[in-house]
């Protein structure tokens, strides 16, 4: 038994080394493949996704100054009709008044329907439903952690960092709103 042969044998990969590595790698791939379904099953399932179809909202009964809450994909959304005063008070706000500036036009329904505000009803801080208030220019305040939004859902102050998000929506007529798609 010479030393040189032993070292050579140790340095050269043997068939056993190959089997170790191959088995180990296949084992890792196998474990990862089996782990995936266990994680994947936690994601929103087909039924939850199907419930995300666009919804129709009839606006006939909503007067200026009123707000209604509708549900799409299990989450609440505000549909609020502003008065002339309220639009005016929101228009006066400038970049320095809010944490995330967005021009007022981008927050309102559109040319024909610019007295409408359609925003998520979950506070962008931690998801509570803000209360509708009418202390112009403030339009919502959140009872949980004190975030205050303007008439168009832009964040004025408090722990929330971003404006109430706008869902995809489209007005199919002056009194009918579809939330969940922006295609008429």
């Amino acid at each position: 038994m010479s030393d040189t042969t032993t070292t050579e044998n140790e340095e050269l990969p043997t068939r056993r080394d190959f089997i170790y590595v191959a088995t180990g790698m296949l084992g890792v791939i196998g474990a990862a493949s089996v782990a995936w379904p266990f994680i994947d099953q936690m994601r929103p399932d087909a039924a939850v996704l199907a419930a995300g179809q666009p919804i129709d909202v009839n606006l006939e009964a909503v007067e200026p100054g009123q707000a209604i809450t509708v549900t799409w994909r299990g989450k609440p959304y505000f549909v609020r009709r502003l008065t002339e005063d309220e639009i005016a008070s929101a228009s006066e706000l400038g970049e320095g008044d809010m944490k995330e500036f967005a021009p007022i036009e981008t927050r309102l329904g559109g040319e024909e329907v610019k007295d409408w505000v359609i925003v998520s009803a979950n506070c962008t801080h931690l998801g509570c439903v803000p209360k509708v208030i009418d202390t112009k220019p403030e339009g919502w305040n959140c009872p949980c952690h004190g975030s205050v939004f303007d008439m168009t859902g832009r964040i004025l102050r408090g722990p929330a960092a971003t404006n109430l998000p706008l869902p995809p929506y489209v007005f199919t007529s002056a009194t009918n709103l579809v939330i969940g798609t922006d295609q008429a």
Partner: peptide, 26 residues
């Protein structure tokens, strides 16, 4: 809602993680 909302604080991965925990959007 509030506690799972913590995860939305993390940029990019936050919202997918929240949906993974909730198994839905809410």
């Amino acid at each position: 809602t509030v506690i799972t909302g913590f995860f939305t604080a993390f940029p990019v991965v936050g919202e997918p993680i929240q949906q993974l925990l909730l198994g839905g959007f809410a």
